[in-house]
Every structure is written in C-alpha cells, then in structure tokens.
Design a protein around this nucleic acid. Structure first.
Lengths: 297, 297
DNA sequence: GTCAGACTTTTAATCCATAAAAAACAGTTT
DNA sequence: AAACTGTTTTTTATGGATTAAAAGTCTGAC
C-alpha cells in the first residue's frame, strides 16, 4: 500500500506554519496552502480535516479559523514523514559507508528487503537507480555485486569531476560581465567569508555551501550529463559528511579558503590561474574522500 | 509470473548446437551444456527434459544420445526468447525515435503498461534505469516528463563524448609499445579495411565495428563512469542505426575513412594530429545524430 | 463570472504472491 | 575421488491488488 508520508510531512509543515500566525486568524485558502506545502489540494484537504479533528481549526468552508490550541498538538515523528524510497537510500548508504561492506560481496534483494523492512520491489527500484553510482553491478537473474567504496572508485570519480569542473570553470570565466552568474558568485563569496568568520560554531554548514558553489560553476554552461554527475557527487558527499566527522572543522576551513582562492581566480578571468585553483581544491577534496574509502584497490 | 524466456532461448540454442553434432552421438554433461548455453544447470535439465519429450534425445542419466529427428523440430519463435525488460526497452525506444514523441509530453506508467502489454512494475523499472539517458525526468508522485530527443540532447551528449574520447585517445597514444592495445588496434584497422573493401554488401556491419573501436579507445585508461556513458551512446546509436537508414551506406563509408585516419594518427603518437582526427570524426557523427532529432531545441 | 469548496476519476507508490532460474546440497557411478 | 545426475532451497522476475496522492470536474457563493 502507498504510504501516507506526503500527508504526514504536509501536516507537520502546516503545524509549523500555523505556529507563526496569530490566534483566531483566518486559514488561507486551500489553493494557497497547497502551494505553500507543496502538495496537491487533495492532500491539503486531508490535512485541514485532521487539523479540524484535532481542534486546531474551527469552522468550515470559508469560515475556518486557527485556535489557540495549536501549540499543544504533537507532530508526526520525523521517521513517518520520509518516503520509503528515501529510507532505503539512507539505510543502504549507511550499510555501505559505515558497516563493513566488503568489495565483491553479493547483494541479495530478499535479504536487504528483510533487513530494511520493505518489500523487494522497493529494493529493486533503489538498486536500479543506484547502479549509475558505479558502486554495484547487476548480474541478470542472479542478483547484484557490490563493487566496493574503494580508492579506485574515488579516483575515477575525481577524474571525471576534474574534467567537468575545469570545463565549467573555463566557461564561467569566459562569461560576459552582464551575466547574472557574477552576482551570484559575489553573494557566495560573501557567504564564504561569513562562514569563515563563524567557523567554530557553523563549520557543518559548509557541506551545503560547497554543493551550491559547485553547482553555480556548472550552471555557467548547462549540460544534463554533467548535472546528473553532480547529483552523484552530492549524494556521496552528503552521506560521507554525515558519517565521517573526523577533522571536520579543520577540513572545512581549508576548503573554504580554497574556494575563496578559486572565486578570486574566476573574477580575475585568467584561465591559467583558474585552472590551478580548481585543481588544487579538487585535489584536496579527493584526498579527503580517499581517506574514507575501504583501503582495497 | 516470471517468464521462461531464458529456457526458450536456451532450448533454441541447444537445438542449434545439436544440429552440428553427429547422429547418435552422446550428449555432453549437464555442466558442460550449462557453460555452453550460459544458463544454470537447472535450466539445462529443463531443456534436456523438453528435448527428451520431443524425441530429440533418448535415454536418461549418463546414457543420453542425440537422435536423427532433431532437424524436424521447431524452435520457439524469437519473440518468446526475449525477456520482458528488453522488450520494454525496444518498444520504448521505438515509441521515442519513430513515433511522434513530443518534447514536454507526460509519460504515464499505467498507459505505457497497457500499451506495451506488461505490468506497471516493468515500466517503472525501465523508466528508473532509463533516467540516466537524460531523456526523461521524474516528477515525484506525478509521473514522468519526456524531455525530447532534441538537438540540445545531441549537443550535450556529444560535448561529453568529445571530452571523454579526447582524454582516452591521448591516454592510448601515450601507451607503451608493449601494450596489447596496439595489437588490437591493428586488428581493428584491418577489419576496417576489409569492410571498406566490401562496403556495398556489408555496410550495416559498421555499427558493431564502430562500437568496438570506441570501446577499445576508452579501454586505454578504464573509468567506470566513462564506460557507463559509452553504454548510453551504444544504445542510442543502436536504435538510431536500426531505424534511420537514410544514406546509411554513404554515411558509413565516410565514417570508416575517418576511423582509419584516426587510427593512423594514433599509431603516429602525435597528440595534435590525434586530436584533430578525433574531433573531425565526432563532428560528423554529431551531424548525423542531429539530423535525426526532433527539430525542437 | 470567478474562485473556493466538494466530489470523482486517474495515477503512482507499495506490498504481496507465484513461477522460473539459480544455487546449494546429496547421493551415484565410473 | 572426481565428475555426474537427482533433489531441495533460495532468490529473482513479473503480474496484480490496494491505498495515497494528484488531477480533473462540478457547484454554489460572492
């Protein structure tokens, strides 16, 4: 059966939204709420009905008002708001990056399904999508082989990343003054400086900034294959950052400085210098990832 | 229910194999047949049982012999030997490349399932795998959008292809004399010359040669992401060649000559010349593909 | 006549069941 | 004991059912 995670997340979001409005104020229209909660009107109505049953909203039709009781009601637990597919991804990445997932190991749909508490269909779907990460391989009629989160994976990943990033950086440097990219780059530069200033408290905010920075660079000359490769990088780094906290503050500070040098190089428009800054940054990112691979080749 | 396409293909292959042995000769062991037919022993036994029931094989256990009647029995029709997943791929590619599949169009799992005569699961699985081709996009809870086989698709595809191919060609040119690649390249060169000689009769054999040539080049410095990108190219070109027969002979002859120039450049080890030959070939391949795109950007 | 609200139809997400194929296990024969 | 064949257990491929969510349609108030 389809899970109602969409509804539950929307319910929680609605609760959070209502917390910010005044007691007794009118509820926005259904269409307005649908846009705000990013769900269909159908789901909004279900949320409103639940909220009504919980006493958070009174009245009906156009006469719905928010009551004072909204603070007392419990949102759904976070776990119930994440769709099955996302849960499978998370659990699989955890299994791969944290548990001892040995290269060459056979993956078994049935066992993974049992382990993750979902139907085999969900596992299959995940594995099929995950194939493009280059970490598993299908053997028709006989399951999947785990190739391992190995140094050679990191090496191959970064070889491509460097090709793509150099190409995009060159394209960005060649963009006319009038391009909106320069404004965005300046904004990002400021964000970097701000983060550097508050590095001790906010160093884990770097992950997000990093991803936005590299995506801005590749947006200079859009290409769907490059974008899709960046999705892979983003996911790998997301989980990598989540579980490898070693030296995090130190690493991030270094990376911010590398980014700033890289940004300055871009503003300088000198291709040689841009390439050097780009390579330097990617080399240290590669080292970081390499250190967390499983040691096998 | 799982289809028995594996069995049927194995049955047909077994029939073809038996046609080549003498009347009354002993049947090879089950294990030997399993290796030859590329299936498990379980399936081999099923094939043997069927063959026995059809009177093609007599005796049992270790005393199985091939009878003279084997020529009279009908193999399964080809269509029944192709697994559902492959059929879905074929039908989808046909729909996309031959029928008027308009960019921006919404894809509907249920409708495709009905149209292709398979369960929705099969469609979902295909779409999930096909996503990496960059031609469709998922909108969660709301189906898929077809982005279109457009000029910009061809352009973006070839931008990446050129980056990858140049990189691999440089790596190949830098390989030591002792590398086995040079021998394989020489073999391919001869095959090209032979095909050029018989171009009028055999021009459609080029598709396969093309794919092998480019795969050899990328094997000079293996990278899983590049290999996986070549899979995309191979599939796109496979279907493209299958349905776009316009000027095929002429196009292929030109491509063979380009390949030969490219191969000579590689043997010459001069990076400049290699790059020029590579670019020239890819440019004309791109033109070919561009001509068959749907005209929209 | 427009727009919010109520109701209806269609489609996607998910689980489950079952046959086919693979893999593992267990005897046999030379 | 190696190399088979026979038997049982697991696992994958595929269809189908069911519920949530989205999309579409109608209705009535302002």
């Amino acid at each position: 059966m389809k899970t109602d995670t969409v509804f539950k997340r929307a319910f929680n979001d609605a609760l959070a939204f209502l917390a910010k409005v005044e007691d007794g104020s009118m509820l926005p229209s259904e269409n307005e709420l649908a846009v705000r909660l990013e769900v269909s009107r159908t789901t909004v109505r279900k949320v409103i009905a639940s909220l009504g049953a919980a006493g958070v909203i009174t009245g009906s039709g156009r006469e719905r008002k928010v009551t004072a009781s909204r603070g007392t009601i419990q949102p759904f637990p976070h776990a119930e708001t994440v769709p099955m597919a996302a849960q499978v991804e998370e659990r699989f990445m955890e299994w791969m990056l944290r548990d001892n997932a040995r290269p060459g190991m056979a993956l078994n749909e049935l066992e993974l399904a049992r382990q993750f508490g979902v139907a085999t269909t969900g596992i299959r779907e995940f594995l099929n999508r995950f194939q493009r990460f280059g970490l598993i391989e299908k053997r028709p009629n006989a399951g999947w082989a785990f190739k391992g989160f190995t140094p050679s994976f990191a090496q191959e990943l970064f070889e491509i990343r460097e090709m793509f990033e150099l190409r995009s950086a060159r394209a960005l440097a060649a963009l006319p003054e009038t391009s909106p990219c320069w404004g965005q780059l300046e904004d990002l530069r400021r964000e970097h400086l701000k983060l550097l200033d508050e590095i001790d408290e906010r160093y884990h905010d770097f992950s997000d900034l990093d991803s936005r920075f590299h995506r801005l660079i590749s947006s200079a000359a859009p290409n769907r294959f490059i974008d899709s490769f960046y999705d892979i990088i983003t996911v790998i780094f997301h989980y990598h950052y989540q579980w490898n906290k070693q030296d995090e503050r130190q690493r991030n500070e270094v990376a911010i400085r590398e980014h700033l040098a890289y940004i300055d190089a871009l503003f300088g428009r000198d291709v040689e210098i841009v390439e050097r800054a780009c390579r330097a940054h990617l080399a240290s990112a590669r080292e970081t990832l390499l250190r967390s691979t499983s040691g096998q080749s």
